[in-house]
């Protein structure tokens, strides 16, 4: 259905343009004076030195969650690779040494030049192994190959950067609940 939006017809003062122009000039002057006399209240931030606050719900760079012993939680089920609309996830599976777990990834690569940051991989993951809550939005590398995040870079994160209530993150090595989690996990995998 076509929805017609009727614009309010201009009255004669508005059609004269000059008064409306003065109104616009007044508005811009307000903004200018704010910038000039209250520089620190500008909504923009000088980026590399000051970073904007990003909520953990923002879909930023990926990370792979870790078990208490430090191995990635990923079970190489390929669900994320299947869900990915951009086909940017490449996984090679290997058999796991832990008897309770069938597979583990030997390669897990995300090409950030191809990724569209839709978050479908996070939705698809059955074991909550992949997340996009790193709040890291800068992708600066020198070669195209460097943009491909591999198993190593995806698992390099510090539990202290995440919330205390985030149980899965805090259970990873270095987290405050790691000891407790290791005890319940019982077995060490080598």
């Amino acid at each position: 259905m076509v929805r017609q939006i009727k614009q309010k017809p201009m009255n004669w003062i508005e059609r004269l343009y000059i008064f409306e122009a003065f109104r616009g000039l007044f508005t811009t002057m307000k903004h200018y004076l704010r910038g000039f006399f209250r520089y620190e209240t500008l909504p923009t931030v000088p980026y590399p030195e000051m970073k904007p606050e990003i909520l953990p719900t923002y879909r930023a760079k990926h990370r792979l969650m870790l078990r208490p012993d430090g191995t990635p939680r990923c079970v190489a089920c390929f669900m994320c690779a299947a869900a990915c609309p951009a086909n940017c996830i490449y996984i090679e599976a290997d058999s796991s040494l832990d008897g309770r777990i069938e597979k583990k990834p030997s390669r897990f690569e995300i090409d950030h030049l191809v990724c569209v940051f839709c978050g479908l991989c996070v939705e698809a993951c059955p074991v909550d192994a992949i997340r996009m809550d790193t709040c890291d939005t800068s992708y600066v590398h020198r070669t195209r190959e460097d943009f491909i995040a591999n198993l190593e870079t995806l698992t390099q994160w510090n539990p202290n950067d995440y919330s205390q209530n985030d149980v899965l993150s805090q259970a990873a090595p270095g987290g405050i609940k790691n000891q407790q989690a290791l005890e319940s996990w019982k077995l060490r995998v080598y």
Binding site: T28, H31, Y32, G35, L42, T44, P46
Partner: peptide, 8 residues
């Protein structure tokens, strides 16, 4: 121009 557009 920056200040008018709320930039720096």
């Amino acid at each position: 121009a920056g200040f008018i557009q709320d930039r720096q």
